[in-house]
Design a binder for these strands. Sequence first.
DNA 1: CAAATACCTATAGTATCTATAGCAATAATC
DNA 2: GATTATTGCTATAGATACTATAGGTATTTG
Lengths: 136, 136
Amino acid sequence: MLSIGELSKRTRVKIPTIRYYEQMGLISAPERTTGNQRRYSKTELSRLSFIKHARDLGLKIEDIRELLTLSANPEMPCAEANHIAANHLGAIRARIAQLQRLEAELARMATCHADNIKDCYVIESLSNHGLCAENH
Amino acid sequence: MLSIGELSKRTRVKIPTIRYYEQMGLISAPERTTGNQRRYSKTELSRLSFIKHARDLGLKIEDIRELLTLSANPEMPCAEANHIAANHLGAIRARIAQLQRLEAELARMATCHADNIKDCYVIESLSNHGLCAENH
DNA sequence: CAAATACCTATAGTATCTATAGCAATAATC
DNA sequence: GATTATTGCTATAGATACTATAGGTATTTG
């Protein structure tokens, strides 16, 4: 049995976050010691690892909740899980494309070598959208 | 003079967001009509455009506040503004790299053709970090 | 001038945590 | 066994950047 601190170390999920997930119903309330401290089993360790991994991938809590429900019913069709992953993939690709446009613009901006603000390209760029190479 | 609705249309900043920015002190409280409605001048239009543009670039409110202060002092050195932009550029590049790793992993996951959850690669991938091609 | 639209304030809610205060339990050391 | 250090508990507030709602008032349009 793991204390909340050990669970936190192993999953790299911070302690208040674990308690928050419990409150949100993502993980169930674990056993307690006579002194009222939480004690976790291997089951909860792997469930929390799943959650952490999915969060690292940028999935929303509600998506994760759905995936957890799905995974609890091993005979259900896999299409739904695929759908969630594919949806998220589209969102990520769009976000990458957007960030790359911003990267280009910031890179241009950061080449400024003016001595003072009145000639600074950073300020100028932000003031005047027309200077942008790409539209956003 | 523009009403808040016109200002919103021209800057594509939503009305409650404009009022929120006023509350946060990013823009100053504008004139009011006798009926207590806000009326904005060109000055405020361009200031809000600056803010919108910077937000679109992903800059944090506090960074924007700093840039606005800098731009109000045209004789100040430009180094600080450059520093903010460059910092942000670094953060964006890191985020792009991270998202590209996630994209690769999700793309692999979404190729799953299993019929039911127990063989689904999406669920399997999230359960088992060891399957990831890249580390994150 | 009436109806439709736009605007006002104040408050609460969203999402995903993180921090703090004040106290209790457990582990480590002597 | 006693002291001390670490860890844990609950409850509440704060961070971020808004968005939504309720209940009421101005302004514009036909």
